[in-house]
Amino acid sequence: MAKPMTKTQLVAALADEMGADKKTASAALDALAGVITKEVAGGGAVTIPGVGKVYCRERPERMVRNPATGDQFKKEADKVVKVTIAKALKDSVNG
């Protein structure tokens, strides 16, 4: 498996695609991350065309087990961030 792209590499590639400088690309990436964070934290969802959908899902209270000790305890309800990958992206990877 290849190493994941770093933020510096992503900003450089984004700047190249946009035909802009790295400062503008970095600001765009930071703005996108801020918008997604604010929307998902507020209970909404964000669809990025061609990439996927980012949303928050609530998990109910449940019993879990500590694998080291075998003790069972009740875990409170919580929220998790989920990403559903777009079909176009799946098809481009698999096809």
Rank of each mutant, 00 (worst) to 15 (best):
A2R: 15
K3C: 01
P4E: 04
K7Q: 13
K7P: 03
T8A: 12
L10C: 04
V11A: 02
V11Q: 00
A12N: 04
A13N: 14
L14E: 01
L14H: 07
L14M: 15
L14V: 12
A15D: 04
D16Y: 08
E17R: 15
A20I: 03
A20Y: 05
K23N: 08
T24Q: 08
T24Y: 00
T24C: 07
A25N: 02
S26I: 02
S26V: 02
A27D: 11
A27Q: 12
L32N: 07
L32R: 00
G34F: 07
I36G: 03
I36V: 14
T37W: 01
K38R: 12
K38S: 14
K38Y: 02
V40P: 07
G43F: 11
G44F: 04
G44H: 05
G44Y: 00
V46Q: 00
P49W: 11
G50S: 10
G52K: 03
K53I: 05
K53W: 05
C56Y: 01
C56T: 13
R57C: 13
E58Y: 02
R59V: 11
P60E: 15
P60Q: 12
E61Q: 13
R62T: 10
M63A: 09
V64S: 10
N66S: 05
P67V: 08
T69A: 09
T69S: 15
Q72A: 12
K74Q: 11
K74P: 08
K75S: 13
K75W: 04
A77G: 06
A77W: 07
K79M: 02
K79T: 11
K82N: 13
K82D: 07
T84N: 15
I85P: 03
I85C: 05
A86P: 00
A86Q: 05
A86G: 03
K87N: 09
K87I: 06
L89E: 06
K90S: 07
K90Y: 05
V93F: 10
V93S: 09
N94L: 12
G95C: 03
G95W: 08
